[in-house]
Design a protein around this nucleic acid. Structure first.
Lengths: 258, 258
DNA sequence: TAAATAGTGTCTATAAGACATTATCTC
DNA sequence: GAGATAATGTCTTATAGACACTATTTA
């Protein structure tokens, strides 16, 4: 610890005299692929750009990271994503499931300057869709059906980001409780199945799907809820997520225990 | 398409007159968690810092992204990771398996200034370990055993990056062919099993493990190779990866990567 | 020949896929 | 009651885990 203190002191002198190098820095942005389920379709929220570049084209919500000059170095990446989403869609952090997808920084992806963007996947429960409104600096917001959306028409490399987000979602759906983030707080087994159908493209066998969900019920992962669904035909039983929030839709193997 | 051309023209004027805003930008770095298997232990390559901050402490190899000022916007993120690895370890891109882990940018993670780092996982086959040498600006390079490495002693937030890399590796090992990246070009089933043992902590049952690998053999994922292993006891049959390079140790769904 | 590791075979439990059947609701 | 969907049950197949057993090599 004495050594550490000494190091810290030397480091203190160093930092006091530190001058940031004159080398060029890229701009850093955060972009969010906001997905939801609407009319049994996987949809993505896009915002029409009001300014160049790509004026008039549709783009993912996002913006530049705020970086402090002095002691405070600015906001965290995730905080920036939440902030942009709230500004541009009105959705608050508690209403979103947010997950980082990675960094995208191909030279030339923004014609203005070098921009590294950190991409996030955001899932919005369908019952919150009505709350979404285009925020201040966003010209217009709209939900687009993911299938049948021409990727190359999106601004920047956002088509690629969308692609990656959907891949990620598909992959994680097999082992994560992510499906629950695309369904209202209370839900029925057929509703949950519709999520999987919309995302994977395939329609799971009703009986087999039910069996999987019922294992979650046995594990306390989900619990019966009161109420029913107003439906055209026979109503289904309603559930909500249980206390054990860490579970998974596909029960996977335990986390590598020795 | 006519509309597109018109847009592009307006955009051309815009870009010609574009002045990058005066807002502060973070520095962007790439860091690599370089892992290998040595003496049946999972090991990480660390480099002792010669300069402040964290002078004398051990850190992941990495460095700042090179950003061009003019027409060329500089190097790609992945290219930067490969470049830094070659500079600091002497390992060439063909000798590495590289995969992005994500962006890390907590304010304060670098005391000098705001730095966003894009983290990569790099796997080095054990037969290439002898080629690793500490490069020019790297004071000293050493392989540390991952278990029993005090995370908080690493520079910056590199302990956290290491943690995430190992988690990622464990998770992917269940369904990716990653194990092959930690074994020589030709390998035996017991060697492959040793990789899994070192990473997961558990020791898979020899019979069951063999059964899994033999499914890969049946699928052409791996093929018998000539030669044997010089071993203390009974030698094992030798294999190498087959033509179908996209396969996985745990046969899963297809990778869906462009 | 002993020791050790490579390699084989078997039994069981679990889960998925396919598909038939019953139950319950609305119109 | 007809039609539709919710819910249950059954048969088969694939795989993982546990574990006993045989084969082959070196010391």
């Amino acid at each position: 610890m004495a050594g550490k203190a000494k190091t810290a002191r030397g480091e203190g002198r160093f930092l006091a005299g530190y001058q940031p190098g004159a080398f060029a820095r890229p701009a850093v942005a955060v972009d969010a692929v906001v997905l939801t389920l609407k009319d049994s379709q996987l949809r993505v929220l896009l915002i029409q750009r009001g300014e160049h570049p790509y004026r008039g084209r549709w783009a993912l919500p996002g913006g530049f990271l705020r970086v402090g000059e002095g002691r405070s170095q600015g906001e965290d990446l995730e905080a920036a994503a939440y902030r942009e989403l709230e500004e541009e869609t009105g959705l608050r952090p508690e209403q979103l499931h947010l997950e980082q997808l990675g960094a995208f920084g191909r030279p030339g992806r923004d014609p203005r300057m070098r921009v590294i963007t950190v991409a996030y996947l955001a899932l919005v429960r369908p019952d919150l869709i009505p709350l979404v409104r285009a925020g201040g600096d966003a010209g217009r917001a709209r939900w687009f059906e993911v299938s049948g959306l021409e990727r190359s028409r999106l601004a920047f490399d956002h088509g690629e980001l969308l692609e990656r987000a959907v891949e990620h979602l598909r992959r994680e759906l097999e082992r994560s409780p992510l499906a629950f983030e695309l369904v209202p707080e209370t839900f029925t087994i057929p509703e949950l199945r519709a999520v999987h159908a919309a995302i994977s493209g395939a329609r799971p066998d009703p009986g087999n799907f039910r069996r999987r969900v019922q294992r979650l019920l046995a594990e306390g992962e989900i619990v019966p809820a009161s109420g029913q669904r107003e439906t055209a035909r026979r109503p289904a039983a309603v559930y909500r997520r249980g206390g054990a929030r860490r579970g998974r839709l596909t029960p996977g193997r335990s986390p590598a225990s020795p």
